[in-house]
Design a protein around this nucleic acid. Sequence first.
DNA 1: CTAGCATGATCAC
DNA 2: TGATCCTGCTAGC
Length: 322
Amino acid sequence: MPEGHSLHRLARQFDDVFGGQTVLVSSPQGRFSSDAERIDGHQLEHAFAKGKQLFCRFSNDLYLRVHLGLYGAFSFGGDQHFTGASSIGAPRKIGESETGTTSDAESYNGPPAPVGAVRVRIVSEHGWADLRGPTACEVLDHDRVQAHLNKLGPDPLIGSAVRFRAAKGQADIADSETLLEAGHKEFRANLLKTKTPIGVALMNQSVISGVGNIYRAEALFRNRISPALPANELSAQKTRKLWWDIVSVMEDGVRDGKIITTLPEDRDPQGVIWPDNAYYVYQRQGMQCRKCSARISLAEVAARKLYWCPRCQKRPRQRHST
DNA sequence: CTAGCATGATCAC
DNA sequence: TGATCCTGCTAGC
């Protein structure tokens, strides 16, 4: 599923294979038909992601906005000019990754008959993309897109996105670091605004965008932060460390197409990295902590499963003010 | 076969 | 806090 790294991979894939192309947009399922008509046959100029959302700008100044939610996924296919991820979105089993190439490259004859509930189908000369099960999928004008973007907190993958665009000559690579520093400042300010537990705040897309349940749990463990700590009590130093650590692990996620947060020295040398040794705490409740051997805890918080190590992630001692 | 579950988020009360 | 959106894999009859 789609945490931020999946959406940024998706944006790259879209930009690579559809960018600058005239595309046919339809809704085999029918639910998107009236919106599809507004962009059908136009040029897809540019695709980008913020947090867990994908935006595509079309040549008639309209935008496609997609939010995959819990179930949404894209599948792709096409000829030899159209390679990359075969599927990006909700993994259907633990361990599914997002890398691979299309299988019909040799004998491409256009997209296959749609299978199941395909909300949107996008077709270019060289390939196609099918979208199923998104939480949100709509066509918007620029102002409404901006309103969505404004609601989202800083995206730790902004630097990754800028470097990708810079490689195409569409951005200045120096902006990467500048924007990440600005993101850190915004993140810090957002945390200071609330007493909400940091474990909940990290899932709030207006505080930081793109972090989901896995990155939330893993980033807190890697930084030895209790998920119960009020957000405004996280020190400036810890906040800085947390931000840059999230940047680092999520950039790895974009590169790998899967989430791996463990360091080599914390993995079982006998086992495979993926998926058995990929995480410190996520879905490891009752198992021994890789660092201290305490049993990993699990609690339901705000309708989501929260995993943490009760020994490594203790709250700092309360200081008496006497 | 079906119920349960999943890396998400909104809305009503 | 709970219902709902909505898809597909998996575990268990």
